Amino acid sequence: MASYRQRGKSKLWDYRIFDKKGKVIATNSGFKTKREAMNEAQEKERKLFQSNYTARFDSKVTLFDLWKDWYDLMILPSEKAESTKEGYRFRGKMIEKLFSDIPAVQITHKEYQIRLNEYGEKVTKEYVGRLNADIRTVVKFSKRSGIVMNDFTDGVKIFGLAGRDIEDKYIHSISNYKDLLSHLRSKFNYRESVMPYLLYFLFKTGFRVGEGMAVCWSDIDFENRTIKTYRRFSGDKQVFTLPKTKTSIREIPVDDKLLQVLKDLKEEQSMVLYDRKDLNKEDLVFYDRRYRIPTNAGLNKYLRVCLSELGIGSQEMSATSGRHTYGSYLLSQGVDIWVVAKLMGHKDIQQLIRTYGHVLQEVIDKEYDTIRDLMVE
């Protein structure tokens, strides 16, 4: 791993490269910009890694060993969110569990397929696919580093248990969607709970749950009717985290009714949080005097109670269904798919098509009637 410093009166940059034990193994200085120092350091790291890697690579090195080198060099120093890195580490542990008994050079395509199939008997196809994607990247990385080995991932087939259907993750009809919003408004009482306010906000903005929790009053532009998001909040851990991706940093338009709800909430907070300076230093919008920011589990439980009271939805739904419903609703109303992708924080429309490409029930019925009319002779 490399570190960079700007030193001296001339403000020139230098770099130092450390091994896994923290010992400096390479250094240089005199660079005018940090980018110049980084370019040389990264090339030096690559050469050092390749020489050391090739020298120690033998018949005993496991796939997990290769994964660990790839993770330490390519993922750990990256700007990926900690939650994303945690996902990589989880899959790394699974690689260690599944392949620790066999050297990487002895893994054949058949053996790899057998082990993936066995893993797929316990988890969903989506999890198997993610694991295979990481392993495929590790194999390619190792081969680029000079390791002679077969790509046993080539042509592999992904099998696994069926995951939860997207149909269980959103409000299916526009009327039910509006009924839920009305029901949440009827529960507005800041002195009792901030949860209905937060859920209403999520269903009206498409924000991820953590994004909604992290909204501050300064993020709301009441004059221009927009709200921005640039970070997340973990309700369970009560800490701020980085945005999921760079495209997650965005500003979305909101309607007057939501803005009025927020204005009323702010006024109510000013009366209840009389010691606001100590209680709410972050100026958070969805802050509860007794419980601070809601937990994900608490928010999910509250939503399911509301759905049960209305007799709609599925007990599988979570607060994230607000995001799914928002995306579905915009698409159903004819909002351009690229605009929806931007509002949802996606870099392109592919994720949108895979996840939110369905439409709501009223729209399906309407289109069916249109088709019937078109086919009349």
Rank of each mutant, 00 (worst) to 15 (best):
D101M: 11
D101I: 11
D101V: 05
I102A: 08
Q106P: 07
H109S: 13
Q113N: 08
L116M: 14
N117E: 09
E118D: 12
Y119N: 01
Y119K: 10
K125Y: 00
Y127V: 06
L131T: 06
D134T: 07
D134C: 08
D134L: 12
I135Y: 05
I135Q: 02
R136T: 11
R136P: 00
T137C: 04
S142I: 11
G146F: 05
D151Y: 10
D151V: 11
F152C: 12
F152A: 11
V156M: 08
I158N: 00
F159R: 13
G160T: 00
G160M: 03
G160L: 07
L161V: 04
R164C: 11
D165G: 11
Y170H: 14
Y170M: 04
I171Q: 03
S173D: 07
I174F: 12
I174K: 13
S175F: 10
S175E: 15
N176Y: 02
N176A: 07
N176T: 03
K178F: 15
S182N: 15
H183Y: 15
L184C: 13
R185Q: 14
F188T: 14
N189Q: 10
P196T: 15
L198H: 09
L199S: 05
Y200F: 15
Y200A: 10
T205R: 08
F207H: 09
V209L: 14
G210D: 05
E211Q: 08
G212K: 04
M213L: 15
C216E: 15
C216R: 15
I220H: 01
N224W: 07
R225H: 06
I227H: 00
K228V: 05
T229N: 06
Y230Q: 09
S234L: 05
S234F: 03
G235H: 02
Q238A: 09
F240D: 04
F240W: 06
T241K: 10
T245G: 03
